[in-house]
């Protein structure tokens, strides 16, 4: 369980995180989603005490991270894959980290095997690929068999097999009752893994809801309709809250009314329909819509963006 209250971080004039409050619950995978530079990493760094919040507070499993007797057993964090001395071997890196907590060497071996690093464990980390560095970071996060996992862009640099493995790992850990907090800037990644979503844009929380609610609450369901009498059907369907687009001569896209009602209307009007496809709005679309304001704002009007930052500083 991670609890953030009015958490804020300013670097000089720049506000990276602007007073966010959220809970990350145990037993499920919570996705932390946002464009690059939205404040995801800074938030995660504050959770484990690497950055000192400018304002507000964040606690993990009831205490500040640093106040736990065995922090690595409370929280395992992958914050940046290259938090390793390049001249030390993977095995020795894990051994040194484990030693701080009296974690036995058998556990070092376990996480090495679990992350598929056994073959390269004795090699210097400096020669590791991005993906191998990522696996080592995950191995380090798992050392303490922690209650809570914080993984910043864990699939970054992984091959498809590795991506699959991280997804299974995250879900498996959540199923064991652990808190799993996973960041990404890719909605497609989240849609495969997360049960709950916290979306952040320019340092503020945009959405905090279950995956289903995020999809359901945004945008209208649309239906693709092919008919040889599009005009007749369009007239019959027209009404409040219904929008109809003609994409091709015999193809309509209808929003605001579900497929069954369209079929009923077509039947009543004796219009032949030869395709009726409900279009699931993709999470990517939802995400783009949610963060649209931030992004549009970003590129369209840099001047008012600066004055915004000024306001943020005063508050």
């Amino acid at each position: 369980m991670i609890e953030a209250r009015n958490l804020a971080k300013r670097y000089g004039a720049k506000t990276a995180v602007d007073g966010v409050s959220f809970n990350v619950q145990p037993g499920k995978v919570t996705g932390f989603l946002g464009p690059n530079g939205a404040g995801k990493s800074t938030t995660m760094r504050m959770i484990v005490g690497l950055d000192r919040p400018s304002h507000g507070d964040v606690i993990v499993n009831g205490k500040h991270y640093a106040d736990h007797k065995a922090p690595l057993q409370e929280v395992g964090a992958l914050l940046d894959a290259k938090a390793v001395h390049t001249k030390r071997s993977a095995h020795n890196h894990l051994k040194a980290m484990a030693a701080t907590h009296g974690i036995p060497n058998s556990r070092v071996k376990e996480v090495t095997e679990m992350t598929g690093l056994s073959a390269v464990a004795k090699k210097r980390v400096g020669g590791f690929s991005l993906g191998m560095g990522q696996r080592l970071g995950i191995a380090a996060a798992m050392l303490g068999d922690p209650h809570t996992l914080i993984l910043d862009e864990p699939v970054n640099g992984l091959d498809p097999e590795g991506v699959q493995w991280v997804r299974h790992l995250a879900k498996g850990l959540a199923a064991e009752g652990r808190t799993v907090f996973l960041s990404s800037h890719l909605m497609s990644e989240m849609s495969q893994t997360a049960d709950h979503l916290i979306i952040i844009g320019r340092g503020r929380i945009i959405a905090d809801a279950s995956m289903d609610d995020v999809i359901a609450g945004q945008g209208q369901a649309r239906t693709r309709v092919r008919t040889d009498q599009p005009q007749v059907l369009a007239n019959a369907l027209a009404g409040e809250g219904v929008s109809i687009q003609s994409l091709e001569p015999e193809l309509l896209e209808v929003a605001g009314i579900d497929a069954r009602r369209i079929a009923e209307t077509a039947l009543q009007n004796r219009v032949l329909v030869y395709e009726l496809t409900p279009l699931q709005e993709s999470l990517e679309d939802v995400y783009m819509k949610l963060t649209q304001d931030e992004v549009e704002y970003h590129s369209a009007d840099p001047v008012s963006q600066l004055s915004m930052a000024g306001e943020g500083r005063q508050s």
Binding site: T100, G102, P104, G144, D145, H147, E176, R178
Partner: peptide, 9 residues
């Protein structure tokens, strides 16, 4: 979930 891998710092 409970972990029992080490003894603490």
């Amino acid at each position: 979930h409970t972990s029992q891998t080490g003894k603490g710092v």
